[in-house]
Design a protein around this nucleic acid. Structure first.
Lengths: 195, 195
DNA sequence: TCGGTTGTCTAGCAGTGCTAGATTCTGCGG
DNA sequence: CCGCAGAATCTAGCACTGCTAGACAACCGA
C-alpha cells in the first residue's frame, strides 16, 4: 500500500504544480500566454502529462478559478472593518483590491465563461464560502430587504466596477467617489457618508 | 473621378459587409467561431482581403463593438419610461435587454479587452452617445451627488448584472427583485418602490 | 530475471491568425 | 482592337494553438 500511496501523493503534488504554474503564467503574461506547450515546459513534463491530470486546458483554468475563489473567501473573511468603518466597506475594498492585484485570477473566476456549475448542482465549496462572506457583509444593512437578492446586487456592482476598471473604462478620478456612492446607496437611509 | 468613386464605394460596402458578417457569425455561434477563414468564406473572398480592410482580427471585432455602441445608444434614447415608470428604470431595462438579446455583441463592446481608446484620447462618438444616455437617465435622481460618478456606479451595476447573468452566476429567481433593489438604492430616499 | 502494468514521450493532426509571392483582373493609351 | 502598367485578389505557406495515437521506457510483483 505504501508505494500506491507514494504514487498518489506524487500525483497530487504534480496536480497542484500544474495549477500553480498555470496561475503564475497567467498572472505574468495573461491567459493568452498560457499554452499547453509553455505550461508543459514550465512543469518540466511533456504535454500529454497535462491531459492525464486534466481533461483539457479548460479544466486547468477551472481548477485555478476554484482555488482562486477559496483565496477570495479567505481574504474577505480576514477583512474586518477598522474603527468606524462599515463591514460593507471593508468587504468591498477587499474585493476590489483582490480583483486589482490578481487580474488574471479574477478573470478565470468570474469573466471567462466556464462550465463551473453555478446553478443548483454541486457548486464548489470555495464559491459558496466567498458568496457567504459577501452575504455576511451585506446583512447589517439589509433592513427589510431580501438578503440574497441584495447581496447579488452588491456583488454585481463590485464585479462591474472591477471589470470595467480593469478594461480602463472608468475614470480613475472617480475611484473614491464611486465606491462612496455605491456604499451610501446600498446602506439604508444614509446617502451622505458611506462609512 | 467616377471610377475612383465607384471603387471607394464598393470598398466601403465590402468593409461593412465584413463587419456585418463577423457580427452575424458571433451572434450565431460565439466569437470563438469567428475565424478568418469562416469569415472570408462568408463574405465570399479570400482571407487576405480581410487584411486589406482591417489590420487584423482584433480590428474587426473593434469595429463591430463600436457599431454596437451606436446601436445601444439608439436603443437607450428610444427607451422612454411608460406611465409611472422612472427614466432610470426604463434605461436599466433597455440596457439589460440589449445585453441579453445580443450577448456576443455586448461581449465585444464591454467584456473582451480591446485597445479602444476609453481614456482622454479620441473616444468613438458612439461610446460617448451611449454613456450620455445613461447620464441623462441618472440625472433625475442625482440629488447632491456627482453626476458622472453616479452614472459610473449605475453603469457598473448594470454591467455586473448583465455579465454575471450571462454566465449563469446569478439566480433567475431574483431577477425582478434584484433590479428593484438596485433602482431603489440609487434613487434618493425611497427604498421601497423602484418605480 | 522476467512480464505486465504504469507512466511518459515523440510525432503528428486539424485548426488558428497572418503574410509573401504569384496570378488575375482592370481601365487606359496607342 | 491590342498591350501594358497598376491594382486587386488568390494560392500556398509559416508558426502557432489544443489535443491525441502509438511507440517507448520505467517500475513493481512474482
Amino acid at each position: 500500500m505504501s508505494i500506491q500511496n507514494r504514487r498518489e501523493r506524487e500525483r497530487a503534488e504534480r496536480h497542484q504544480l500544474i495549477i500553480d504554474a498555470a496561475r503564475d503564467l497567467a498572472e505574468a503574461d495573461g491567459w493568452d500566454a498560457v499554452t499547453t506547450r509553455r505550461l508543459a515546459e514550465k512543469v518540466e513534463y511533456s504535454q500529454p502529462v497535462l491531459y492525464s491530470h486534466f481533461k483539457g486546458k479548460d479544466a486547468i483554468v477551472r481548477a485555478v478559478a476554484i482555488q482562486g475563489c477559496g483565496e477570495l473567501a479567505r481574504l474577505l473573511r480576514k477583512a474586518r472593518p477598522s474603527r468606524g468603518e462599515s463591514r460593507l466597506r471593508a468587504a468591498a475594498e477587499a474585493y476590489l483590491e483582490f480583483a486589482r492585484r490578481r487580474p488574471a485570477l479574477y478573470d478565470a473566476m468570474f469573466v471567462q465563461q466556464s462550465d463551473i456549475p453555478w446553478g443548483t448542482d454541486e457548486v464548489p465549496q470555495e464559491l459558496l464560502d466567498a458568496f457567504g462572506e459577501l452575504v455576511a457583509a451585506v446583512e447589517p444593512v439589509r433592513g427589510e430587504r431580501d438578503l440574497e437578492a441584495l447581496t447579488e446586487v452588491f456583488w454585481s456592482s463590485l464585479h462591474g466596477i472591477a471589470t470595467l476598471m480593469q478594461g480602463k473604462r472608468l475614470r480613475p478620478v472617480h475611484d473614491v467617489t464611486r465606491l462612496d456612492l455605491l456604499l451610501g446607496a446600498l446602506s439604508l437611509g444614509q446617502h451622505e457618508d458611506g462609512l
